[in-house]
Simulated assay, not measured.
Amino acid sequence: MLYKTTTLKNLPMHNVFNRTCIFEPVVKNNQSLLRKREYSDTVYKVLIEGCYLNCSVDYPLFAILIAQYINNVIDEVDNPIITTIPLSIIVDSIGVSGAGNRDANFKKIYGSLARLENTKISYMNQISKKVVEGTLIINSDLDFKNKSLTVHFTQLILDLYNLESIKESEVKFMNIQQLTEIDTEGAKALYKFLVTQSKGYIDFTFERLSMVLGYHYRTVAGKRNAKPEERKIPLKDSKKRGYIKEALNILKSNGMIADFHYYAKLGHYRMLQTEYYPDIVQDIDIHKLKSNIKQIKQVKFKKSKSAQDDDFPFDPKNN
């Protein structure tokens, strides 16, 4: 059940935006680049075309706009897809600089709106087989006189947030204020995925996290004299693990994760959210808990389909 929201601590975000790489860790140099990729797991199959969407500005801004759209629908306003929010919410609450009435002062907001307008997704729920597609927003307008931002939502959002059919398990009320206080893009991306998991889901395979965080698709420049097709090579697994570890350390230092451990031989991470495990003994209690991943071989981890799938369950209680 969706309800009206008035703070940044409980904004309704569909889990297709939380549990996939539609929004991912983006370095500054990649914000102007385009991508085309397919993400797939046991619940979501998403084709993403367009801009890289970051977790520092694009995700919070989109979440605020979505919340206002839901408020419009609940209030039964005329044309709820035309959504307007005060600029002060963006400037004051999520730390995006902007003041006065000059375009230059709102560079980050303009950039974010352009990326959201130029990203198209095609999404299929692997369980219901329902398909929805479209751009995220259209026709954005910054009104300096009235200090407001207006966007139009597309049929994609109307389909995803259909109040008559949406399930509770499909939405997580996100604490955007907490997310914006996290230091790095990688930690923000991991946070928005992890907080959608319930207490029993503590183990996640390296492959799954790499896909959710977008590292699975990342490439680096090859040798200078290499052929064009050889100039982009996949990111090494050691680099991916380094990025994941950095994000985990940040979330632990912020008090969002009570403890974590990487089981190298098994190829999976165990992460305990402080919300569910506030009083554990460090480096001891974490090893006593039952795994949610089935068919893990204790001697050698095998990359079986079931081992990959069971760490990303579609559980009606998992909200």
Rank of each mutant, 00 (worst) to 15 (best):
M124D: 08
M124H: 06
M124I: 14
M124A: 12
M124W: 04
N125F: 05
N125T: 07
N125P: 03
N125I: 06
Q126D: 10
Q126F: 07
I127C: 11
I127Y: 09
I127F: 11
S128F: 00
K129Y: 05
K129E: 07
K129V: 04
K129Q: 06
K129D: 05
K130I: 08
K130R: 09
K130S: 10
V131Y: 06
V131N: 08
V131I: 12
V132R: 00
V132H: 00
V132E: 01
E133V: 02
E133M: 03
E133Q: 05
G134T: 03
G134P: 00
T135D: 04
T135K: 05
T135Y: 07
T135P: 04
T135H: 07
L136A: 03
L136R: 04
L136N: 03
I138K: 01
I138N: 01
I138W: 02
N139M: 03
N139P: 12
N139E: 00
N139R: 03
S140W: 06
S140T: 04
S140C: 08
D141T: 10
D141R: 13
L142V: 11
L142M: 10
L142P: 02
D143F: 05
D143L: 08
D143I: 08
D143Q: 10
D143H: 07
F144L: 15
F144E: 15
F144I: 15
K145F: 05
K145R: 11
K145Q: 12
N146C: 09
N146H: 06
N146L: 10
N146E: 11
K147G: 14
K147E: 14
K147S: 14
K147C: 13
K147L: 13
S148K: 12
S148W: 05
S148G: 09
S148T: 14
L149D: 13
L149S: 14
L149H: 11
L149I: 11
T150W: 10
T150M: 14
V151T: 11
V151S: 13
H152V: 15
H152K: 15
H152T: 15
H152Y: 11
H152E: 15
F153V: 11
F153N: 11
